[in-house]
Design a protein around this nucleic acid. Structure first.
Length: 415
RNA sequence: GGAGAGGUGGCUGAGUGGUCGAAAGUAGCGGUUUGCUAAACCGUCGUAGGAGUAACAUCCUACCGGGGGUUCGAAUCCCCCCCUCUCCGCCA
């Protein structure tokens, strides 16, 4: 949610931003409705002031009661119109996108993202590289068929050494983030509507959400929802910021409308797993914290030995709550391209305003905190490990940093 | 699943129709004093919206879990809902 004062003081800026981000809200109309609303606030408050004054008078002057009774009719009419306007204005406000960082590239799709740098050396194979799905089948470590049988297409099993490798990577990543100042959480995997709304997943990504029937609960699409929601309606002592949180959870997404796109293997699925980075910080600190999360993401991929590129995500490829977003795309030799493995968004005060997460300093400073939401690692990183470290016979060499957690250094077909 | 208790300001916690935006304590902030890693005393201290000011000041409105009702007037009375806690049952 943006500050409604921005709409009142600089409607052109809001309008321009909405247009650039493909938002269909009629800003001119919204401004007009808000004007009427603010005008009514004045009228209603004046009437209430008069009513309150007369009510006090009633104790010594019973005749004032009749005057107040008459006033109440006028007041009730204005109040009901005011409430009506507020509902409409509030609803429209929830659809307005966040403002953008000046250095966000223009563009309508991921093809317009700006590559910032390429890191790591792509492996060179003297053989035809397999993609993660082929390797998973050959090694018997990914089972999408039974995932579909038991749950639905889009669910899958990691099996045997594949599951061990995946768990090892998630555990290692959590340990690394703890070393880097993050507090580890184990989080609920469901959240109520208000939490999803507050984090900006509703109303924007409603069709991506699995809701539980008969409950005000949905499966989380990311632990960002529960970790940011953790501090909803709280005032944080500025001296305790920035706060860095991490957790590992499954993430559920309906992926409505995305059938057929990038669907081979387990790249786009209904349930994946993610180690998350969340930072709550002072407004002036959010660009620095945003970079910090990117450094962490890169550090993890570098430790694993994976080649990747960093892109500055363009307007059209960024969700409405984002102010600026970096994606990291790992190199997938079996697939033959770069594919997104992490994303890292500075949400400024967009979530904090909706959730009521504020800070207060000893010097009297106060305001809404800024939040950063970034990936640590996901199953997609394991897929990248499989593809980058595959051998001609289909076996896969385990990255050294994970060996203490896997207890083996390679996965071999038939073993 | 059954029974009971309760939701008040950053926190603890008084307050059952007007003098309550709300006692007190605590934390925070400012100061005084004594001094040694702290105590005592004094003062100050909720949030949001609107009006107002060069900026302060100041004024008004709303907010005591949420919504509705009664009343000239509601934290306080009535109704509905939500949530939390305790006990019992069941159970990973």
């Amino acid at each position: 949610m943006i500050d409604i004062r921005a709409l009142r003081e600089n409607p052109d800026r809001v309008k321009e931003n909405a247009a650039r981000r493909g938002c269909t809200v009629d800003v001119d109309k919204l401004v007009a409705l808000d004007r009427e609303y603010v005008g009514l606030i004045r009228e209603v408050e004046d009437l209430r002031a008069e009513r309150n004054r007369l009510s006090k008078e009633c104790q010594t002057n019973p005749a004032a009661r009749d005057t107040v009774k008459e006033m109440k009719v006028t007041l009730a009419n204005k109040e009901s119109r005011m409430a009506e306007l507020k509902t409409v204005v509030d609803e429209q406000m929830t659809w307005l996108p966040n403002f953008l960082s000046p250095d966000v590239p223009d563009g309508g799709s991921d093809a317009d993202n700006a590559a910032l740098r390429f890191v790591g050396k792509k492996p060179e194979f003297a053989f035809a590289g397999r993609d993660h799905q082929a390797l998973g089948e050959l090694l018997g470590i990914i089972d999408t068929g039974r995932g579909a049988k038991v749950a639905q297409s889009g669910f899958y099993y990691w099996v045997g050494k594949g599951a061990q490798l995946t768990q090892a990577m998630f555990f290692w990543a959590q340990q690394e983030l703890v070393k880097r100042g993050f507090t580890l959480f184990m989080s609920p995997c469901v959240a109520k509507e208000q939490t999803l709304f507050g984090t900006g997943y509703l109303p924007f990504f409603k069709d991506q959400t699995y809701t539980l029937s008969g409950e005000d609960l949905a499966l989380i699409g990311t632990s960002e929802q529960t970790l940011v929601g953790y501090h909803a309606d709280e005032i944080l002592d500025a001296g305790t910021l920035p706060r860095r949180y991490t957790s590992y959870t499954p993430c559920f997404r309906t992926e409505a409308g995305s059938y057929g796109k990038e669907s081979r293997g387990i790249f786009r699925v209904h349930q994946f797993h993610k180690v998350e980075q969340i930072i709550f910080c002072l407004p002036e600190d959010s660009p620095r914290c945003h970079e910090l999360c990117l450094e962490n993401e890169e550090y993890l991929l570098q430790q694993l030995g994976l080649p990747y590129r960093v892109v500055n995500v363009c307007v059209g490829d960024m969700g409405a709550p984002g102010y600026k977003k970096y994606d990291i795309e790992a190199w997938y030799p079996g697939y033959g391209g770069y594919r997104e493995v992490t994303s890292n968004t500075n949400l400024t005060d967009f979530q904090a305003r909706r959730l009521g997460i504020r800070y207060k300093g000893n010097d009297g400073s106060k305001g809404f905190v800024h939040t950063i939401s970034a990936t640590g690692v996901t199953d997609r990183v394991v897929c990248a490990i499989l593809e980058n470290f595959q051998q001609e016979d289909g076996s896969v060499i385990i990255p050294e940093v994970l060996r203490p957690y896997t207890g083996f250094d390679r996965i071999t077909p038939g073993v």
